[in-house]
Deep mutational scan, measured.
Amino acid sequence: SAVVMEEGSPGEVPVLVEPPGLEDVEAALGMDRRTDAYSRSSSVSSQEEKSLHAEELVGRGIPIERVVSSEGGRPSVDLSFQPSQPLSKSSSSPELQTLQDILGDPGDKADVGRLSPEVKARSQSGTLDGESAAWSASGEDSRGQPEGPLPSSSPRSPSGLRPRGYTISDSAPSRRGKRVERDALKSRATASNAEKVPGINPSFVFLQLYHSPFFGDESNKPILLPNESQSFERSVQLLDQIPSYDTHKIAVLYVGEGQSNSELAILSNEHGSYRYTEFLTGLGRLIELKDCQPDKVYLGGLDVCGEDGQFTYCWHDDIMQAVFHIATLMPTKDVDKHRCDKKRHLGNDFVSIVYNDSGEDFKLGTIKGQFNFVHVIVTPLDYECNLVSLQCRKDMEGLVDTSVAKIVSDRNLPFVARQMALHANMASQVHHSRSNPTDIYPSKWIARLRHIKRLRQRICEEAAYSNPSLPLVHPPSHSKAPAQTPAEPTPGYEVGQRKRLISSVEDFTEFV
Rank of each mutant, 00 (worst) to 15 (best):
D217I: 14
N220T: 13
K221C: 15
K221Q: 15
P222V: 08
L224G: 11
L225E: 15
P226R: 09
E228I: 08
Q230E: 12
F232S: 07
E233W: 13
E233Q: 14
E233T: 09
R234M: 09
R234F: 05
V236Y: 08
Q237W: 06
Q237L: 08
L239H: 08
L239V: 08
D240E: 08
I242H: 04
I242M: 15
S244H: 11
Y245M: 09
D246M: 06
T247P: 04
K249A: 14
V252Y: 00
V252M: 01
L253P: 00
Y254P: 00
V255I: 07
V255F: 02
E257V: 07
S260G: 09
N261S: 11
S262E: 08
S262H: 07
L264E: 13
N269W: 00
N269G: 03
E270V: 05
G272W: 03
S273L: 01
R275S: 01
Y276R: 00
T277P: 01
E278W: 03
F279A: 01
L283N: 00
G284P: 01
G284L: 05
G284D: 03
R285M: 14
R285L: 06
R285T: 15
L286W: 04
I287Y: 09
E288L: 07
E288R: 09
K290N: 13
K290A: 10
D291N: 14
D295W: 05
L299M: 08
L299Q: 15
L302V: 14
D303T: 05
C305T: 15
C305Y: 11
G306D: 10
E307S: 14
D308S: 09
F311S: 05
F311Y: 10
W315F: 09
D317I: 00
D317K: 02
M320P: 03
M320G: 06
M320A: 13
A322C: 14
A322I: 15
A322D: 03
V323Q: 14
F324S: 02
I326M: 03
L329P: 04
P331E: 05
K333Y: 15
D336V: 06
D336C: 10
D336K: 10
H338P: 09
R339Q: 14
R339M: 15
R339D: 12
D341T: 10
D341P: 10
K342Q: 06
K342Y: 06
K342I: 05
K343G: 06
R344C: 06
L346M: 10
L346I: 15
L346A: 05
N348G: 15
F350L: 05
V351W: 00
I353K: 00
V354H: 00
V354K: 00
Y355Q: 00
D357K: 01
G359P: 02
F362A: 02
K363R: 10
L364H: 14
G365M: 05
T366W: 05
T366K: 03
T366H: 04
I367A: 03
K368Q: 15
K368P: 12
G369M: 11
F371S: 14
F373K: 13
V374T: 03
V374L: 03
V374N: 01
H375G: 15
H375Q: 15
I377N: 05
I377K: 02
V378C: 10
T379D: 06
T379K: 07
L381Q: 06
D382G: 04
D382E: 12
Y383H: 05
Y383S: 05
Y383L: 06
E384M: 06
N386P: 00
L387D: 03
S389A: 08
L390K: 02
M396F: 14
M396V: 15
M396D: 02
E397D: 04
E397L: 13
V400K: 03
S403P: 07
S403W: 03
V404H: 08
A405T: 15
A405V: 15
K406F: 15
K406I: 15
I407R: 03
V408A: 03
V408C: 06
V408N: 01
R411H: 10
N412S: 06
P414N: 00
F415Y: 03
F415P: 01
V416L: 06
V416G: 00
V416S: 02
A417N: 00
R418T: 10
A421P: 00
M426Y: 06
Q429N: 08
H431N: 06
H432T: 07
S433L: 07
S435H: 11
S435G: 09
N436S: 08
P437N: 06
S443Q: 09
K444V: 08
W445G: 10
A447W: 11
L449I: 05
H451V: 15
H451R: 08
R454M: 13
R456Y: 13
I459L: 12
I459R: 07
I459W: 14
C460W: 14
A463P: 12
S469L: 07
L470A: 13
P471C: 09
P471S: 11
L472T: 14
L472E: 15
L472A: 15
L472G: 15
V473Y: 11
P476Y: 13
S477T: 11
H478D: 15
S479F: 09
K480G: 15
K480R: 11
T485Q: 14
T485G: 11
P486R: 10
P486K: 08
E488M: 09
Y493V: 14
E494K: 07
E494Q: 12
E494T: 08
G496P: 15
Q497P: 14
R498V: 11
R500T: 13
V505Q: 14
V505H: 14
E510Q: 12
E510L: 08
